[in-house]
Design a protein around this nucleic acid. Structure first.
Lengths: 197, 197
DNA sequence: AGATTCGTGTTGGATAAGCAACAAAGGAGA
DNA sequence: TCTCCTTTGTTGCTTATCCAACACGAATCT
C-alpha cells in the first residue's frame, strides 16, 4: 500500500480501481471548491469508497494532491511524447513550453493563492522535470555529473516558467521557450559532438 | 450474492461496483458480437474483473443478459415516470407504447435471430409488465384477483407489441397503443368508479 | 467554561474480490 | 481415433475493501 513508485505494472485490479475512483472524485472536486475546503469525506463520498480505504492509499489529502499533480503533468509530457525520448534542442524547447503552460494552467485553476497548493505543485513538477532530464543525460553521457546539470536546468526551467506565467501581457509559451532555450541548454552543458539535431 | 430482487437499497459498494462494471462491459460487447459468441472471459477481461467474481454474481451469461434486459426496460419505464405511479388510461397507453418501442429496439439490435435471446427478452419484459400492473391494481382494489387480471393484460400487451413490431409498414407506436388501449383495458377490468382520468 | 459539532486518523473483525489451479466438456484438425 | 486448445464452472487460500467504533483536536455556540 501507499505505493508511489513511478512504475508499477501488475497492480491488483482492486487498488487500480480504488485509486482511479479517488483521483476522479478529487479531480471533480478541485474546480468546485478550494483545496483547503475539500475534506477527505467529500472525496470518499463522491468516489463511493470507504474513508478507511482512502487512508490505506494516501496518508492525507496532500499526498493525494501530489499524485494528482504528478499524473497530470506526466500526462502532458506523454501527450507530446516527451516522456520516452532523447535529448535534442527541439525536445528541450518543447519541455520548457510544456512547463510554462502547465504552471499557467494550474495557477488559473487554483482559485485563491494557497501557499501549500503552490509549493506542492512546484515540488512535483520539479521532480518530474528532474527525472526526465536525468534520463536524457544518462543516455548521452552516463556518469558525467548528470545530477547536478539536471538540477541546474530543472530549477532554471521552473523559475523561468513561473516568471513568465506572472507577466501581464505575456508572449506565447512557444516563443518564450525558444527565447530562453539557450540559457537552459547552457546549464545542461551538452558536448557539441553529441547533439542530434 | 446472486441477488436479483428488484429493490435493494443498501448494497455493499463493492458488489455495486462489480455488477456495474460487468454490465457496462457486457453492454459494450453486445453490439460488437453475437450473444452466443460473447464468452464470460470476454466480459470479465473488458470489465477488469476476475472471472471467479463473475460467477459469484451470475450463474452464467444468460442470467447476466436477463438482468441487463430487466434494467434496460426499467430504465425506459423510469424515463416516462411509469414505474412509480397509479393506473390511468393515459399511463396504460404509455406503457403499451413503451413495450412496443422496447421490443422493436431489441429486435433491431439482436443481429441474427437467436431463439434463446428472444425468449429471455420476452420473459424479462413480461415479468416487468406484470409486476407494474399488479402494483397499479393493488392501489385501486386490493385483493380482487389482481394476479389474473394483470396476467391477462400482460400477455395481451406483449403479444400486441410483438405483432406490431413484425409488421412491415407499421404505424407509430403511439397510435398503435391508442388503438389497442381498449382491448387491454378490458383485460384489466377496472371498475368505472375508480377511474382517475 | 462546558457542551456540541465536525473532521481526522486508526483499529478489529466481517466480507467481497483476486488469483492460481483443477476437472470436465466441447471443437478443430491431423 | 487421438491430441491440442478453449471455455466453463468450481475450489482454497490470499488480499483489499467495507463498516462501525473509537480517541483526539479544532471550531462554534450558550
Amino acid at each position: 500500500m501507499l505505493a508511489t513508485s513511478p512504475i508499477q505494472e501488475k497492480l491488483d485490479p482492486r487498488v487500480k480501481r480504488t485509486r482511479a475512483l479517488i483521483q476522479k472524485a478529487f479531480g471533480e472536486l478541485l474546480p468546485e471548491k478550494e483545496f483547503r475546503d475539500i475534506t477527505v469525506q467529500d472525496i470518499t463520498e463522491r468516489a463511493e469508497v470507504n474513508r478507511a480505504t482512502f487512508y490505506a492509499h494516501y496518508p492525507d489529502k496532500y499526498a493525494l494532491l501530489e499524485e494528482n499533480i504528478a499524473q497530470a503533468f506526466r500526462a502532458e509530457l506523454d501527450k507530446r511524447t516527451l516522456s520516452a525520448c532523447h535529448y535534442s534542442q527541439e525536445n528541450l524547447r518543447a519541455l520548457i513550453e510544456t512547463v510554462c503552460e502547465f504552471v499557467a494552467y494550474s495557477h488559473k485553476h487554483c482559485k485563491a493563492a494557497e501557499q501549500q497548493f503552490d509549493s506542492l505543485v512546484e515540488g512535483q513538477v520539479r521532480l518530474q522535470i528532474q527525472t526526465l532530464l536525468e534520463l536524457w543525460l544518462a543516455k548521452i553521457n552516463p556518469g558525467a555529473q548528470e545530477k547536478f546539470r539536471a538540477t541546474a536546468a530543472t530549477w532554471a526551467i521552473y523559475g523561468l516558467a513561473l516568471e513568465w506565467s506572472r507577466q501581464k501581457n505575456r508572449q506565447p509559451a512557444r516563443d518564450f521557450a525558444e527565447q530562453v532555450l539557450g540559457l537552459v541548454a547552457g546549464n545542461l552543458n551538452i558536448p557539441q559532438s553529441e547533439l542530434q539535431d
